[in-house]
Design a protein around this nucleic acid. Structure first.
Length: 762
DNA sequence: GACTGTTTA
């Protein structure tokens, strides 16, 4: 294990230059408590009940029958209801045509007996996500068992969890598999397949296969560290290497290596599924020396048409020019139908390219097919995104989709035969030394380039034009840096600690973040009151882990429920707006557009800054009962984001009620709008300082802002209500480096409030 | 005067 080799080295470095004493405000804390060495190689999940005897009892009489019974026989009798049939016959044919179908017995065999881990590498279209859970549900080890855990009799197993990085994948896969298996979702209260994603749970009675998002499984781990309801966990799309999937891999490894006490001795089977072949790392991670059986590996061919790859002969200096030439070359020489998908880095580049293409295509002769340009990026409205997925309405037209890497994994554009790849993508990188993230265009990885290329071969043979040389391709990194090495690890550290692992350095991770960034996270968590001076998790920390928002926001929620602040409903409204995804305010491109909405937006803006502006917007939106969509349109407010904000508001209110932070359910909408008084606003902002006291800046004599911690010059982002305004001191919720160092979500505060909070008097 | 992409009871 990589982190095993590195850990002693890190500790040595620590001892050499002792930075383990850190001052925060008036507090001095010693990091050695956080970073204590541990003799045990791995910390076990908390054995909330001590394991004494294993008494594996068959739950039903079928299980005590002789094991010779044929599979179909067992199936019939084991069925909760007669609807456990062989599935929908019309779908069975297409299932049998999937490349994975012939591996069915192999997959079953590789998880029998003491083999608990299977790694499946399968390209897109292999059918692994839909078929593997169906192959496994009738395996003998997949039955629910009654066992004794200390003095309690508990059920262990019976279900298979399958994780997905995105909500839409979890729900659509569940829908597909439920139809294949013969118990379609939504037709009955009983069924074999269900899903669980944020805001949406559909778990029919008798569910054996449960699709869920990665975050959802992490949340379940909080309540049940041993995942007792599951016989197996299938981790899909592990190659995407989200922070959540890395954490899940760590928790699964701990359960695999543990003494199974919390599961009454019953093993958990783990299937890891990946689209790319970075096999050694995953295999090595789950296959340490002390595991008796080795990790089985299965490779499955995908169903992909061949794609002809063309590189440039010389490096490209002007991407826009090369793109334009390439698009019109394809357009003039390749037959219809066959749409073009071009990967660019961001909105700005896409808009510029769109203008150029449209200008040039206007000059084309009338006997040449038309070109329809569709931008595709996350900030785009749903409607505009839909246009990119629809075939061109007019005939004799070729569609050109100009996309960010949203089209690499998150969405699939149909009809594409030609891909143009600029070789770059914007990547977020957190710099823990500066407490700031950057968003800059960087060279993509080989794996990313291959993924982009594959988008040309979904429906037939295709071509991929790379706007870089084959030498450049050879020089690319094999895989992208996993997110856990690019992100703030604050959330990851809290997630680990809240699930009973005190020594985060002992937690198994495929890639371990810098010690320094872990230290920074620990210090920040200590400031938030989530960790005690000895580094152990506090009650506050446990509460923060319950909220579906980052720890600083969670801290603000907790502060808001204290009598001295008493502004919980307001804080919930604000945090709901902020964490709903995109900015609730559309960015206005032209002077005209700005003038058009000015009158309407004026009543939303507050001189205190963005936090109060969000509050006003949510309150006025919720007070509007007749036509919310029209209300949004007039103010150029993102309806989708506001709807999401209402969902989050409801969720947060629910958690706060359950946690007794709210005494009673808030009155239902619509409530009359009452603007918050300046005094109330001041209290609200002081409350936010409890989470963001470390993110403040003071106005310097030269009118720039300088951060209190680190003394960095920052500019107020143009999206902020305080852009171009001068305030004595500001608090910001985000700090991003793009063209320059920007702070976002900015509010005016008073310097003495900052001192107050940092000295622990807030 | 500027905005890769996901996700959480």
């Amino acid at each position: 294990m990589a982190q095993d080799e590195h850990r002693p080295k890190r500790r040595k470095t620590k001892a050499e230059n002792d930075t383990s004493i850190v001052k925060i405000g008036n507090k001095t804390i010693s990091l050695s408590a956080y970073l204590q060495p541990q003799k045990k190689p791995l910390e076990q999940p908390p054995a909330d009940q001590q394991y004494t005897t294993v008494e594996t009892q068959p739950e039903s009489k079928i299980e005590s029958e002789p094991p010779k019974k044929s599979e179909s026989d067992t199936r019939k009798k084991n069925a909760p209801k007669q609807h456990i049939s062989s599935g929908d016959p019309s779908l069975l044919k297409s299932r049998k045509a999937l490349p994975i179908w012939t591996h069915q017995n192999e997959i079953k065999a590789s998880l029998r007996d003491d083999n608990d881990v299977l790694l499946i590498v399968g390209e897109t279209g292999s059918g692994k996500s839909t078929q593997v859970p169906q192959f496994l549900i009738d395996e003998p080890w997949c039955r629910k068992k009654k066992v004794r855990v200390q003095s309690d009799t508990v059920n262990v197993g019976g279900m298979i969890a399958i994780t997905q990085p995105r909500r839409v994948a979890a729900t659509t896969l569940a829908s597909r598999v439920s139809r294949e298996i013969g118990t379609p979702l939504g037709t009955s209260r009983e069924g074999l397949v269900g899903y669980s994603v944020r805001f949406e749970h559909n778990i029919p009675k008798g569910t054996k296969i449960k699709f869920l998002t990665e975050g959802m499984l992490l949340q379940e781990l909080l309540r049940d560290p041993n995942l007792r309801q599951y016989s197996a966990v299938i981790v899909d799309e592990i190659h995407e290497r989200s922070v959540d999937v890395d954490l899940i891999a760590g928790f699964l490894k701990q359960i695999l290596l543990g003494d199974k006490a919390g599961r009454g001795g019953i093993p958990l089977k783990v299937v890891i599924m990946s689209a790319t072949a970075d096999v050694e790392k995953i295999q090595g991670f789950f296959n340490p020396e002390n595991l008796t059986s080795s990790v089985q590996l299965l490779r499955i061919k995908g169903r992909q048409y061949p794609v002809d790859i063309k590189h440039t002969t010389k490096p490209v200096s002007d991407i826009q020019e090369a793109l334009l030439k390439r698009i019109f070359d394809i357009h003039m020489h390749e037959p219809l139908p066959g749409d073009i998908l071009a990967f660019l880095t961001g909105q700005e580049e896409i808009e510029a390219a769109q203008r150029l293409i449209e200008e040039y295509s206007a000059t084309l002769a009338s006997d040449v097919p038309k070109l329809l340009v569709c931008p595709l990026y996350g900030q785009l409205s749903i409607q505009a995104q839909q246009d990119a997925f629809q075939p061109a309405k007019k005939g004799f037209t070729r569609k050109v989709v100009l996309a960010t890497n949203i089209a690499e994994t998150s969405v699939t554009v149909p009809g594409v035969r030609y891909v143009i790849d600029c070789g770059k993508a914007k990547v977020k990188q957190f710099r823990s030394q500066l407490g700031m993230e950057s968003l800059l265009a960087k060279a993509i990885s080989k794996s990313s380039a291959i993924q982009r290329t594959g988008r040309a071969g979904r429906e037939g043979p295709g071509k991929c034009y790379r706007l870089y040389t084959s030498e450049t391709y050879d020089s690319l990194r094999d895989a992208d840096l996993p997110e856990i090495l690019r992100n703030d690890v604050l959330g990851a550290v809290l997630t680990i600690k809240a699930r009973g692992i005190n020594n985060v350095l002992s937690f198994p991770l495929m890639d371990f973040p810098d010690l320094e960034s872990v230290e920074k996270a620990l210090i920040q968590l200590h400031f938030l009151g989530a960790l005690a001076d000895d580094g152990s998790i506090t009650e506050t920390g446990k509460k923060l882990a319950l909220f579906p928002v980052s720890a600083p926001y969670g801290r603000v929620l907790l502060a808001a429920s204290e009598p001295q602040y008493d502004c919980l409903l307001e804080v919930i409204d604000i945090i709901a707006c902020i964490t709903a995804g995109e900015n609730i305010f559309y960015q206005l491109q032209s002077e005209e557009a700005r003038e058009e909405v000015e009158e309407y937006r004026k009543e939303l803006y507050r001189r205190e800054g963005d936090i109060l502006t969000y509050l006003t917007t949510m309150q006025r939106y919720a007070a509007e009962n007749a036509d919310r969509t029209g209300w949004c349109r007039k103010r150029k407010v993102n309806t989708r984001t506001m709807k999401q904000a209402l969902n989050i508001r409801k969720q947060l209110r629910g958690i706060c009620l359950k946690e007794k932070m709210l005494a009673e359910p808030p009155p239902p909408d619509p409530q009359p709008f009452v603007p918050m008084s300046p005094e109330g606003a001041a209290q609200l902002l002081r409350c936010f300082l409890r989470g963001f006291g470390t993110r403040c800046a003071l106005l310097a004599p030269d009118s720039s802002y300088v951060t209190v911690q680190g003394k960095h010059v920052v500019a107020v982002h143009p999206s902020s209500a305080l852009h171009g305004r001068k305030r004595e001191s500001i608090m910001f919720l985000e700090h991003v480096f793009t063209q320059r160092s920007y702070v976002k979500k900015v509010s005016a505060v008073q310097a003495d409030w900052i001192v107050e909070v940092m000295e622990g008097r807030g």
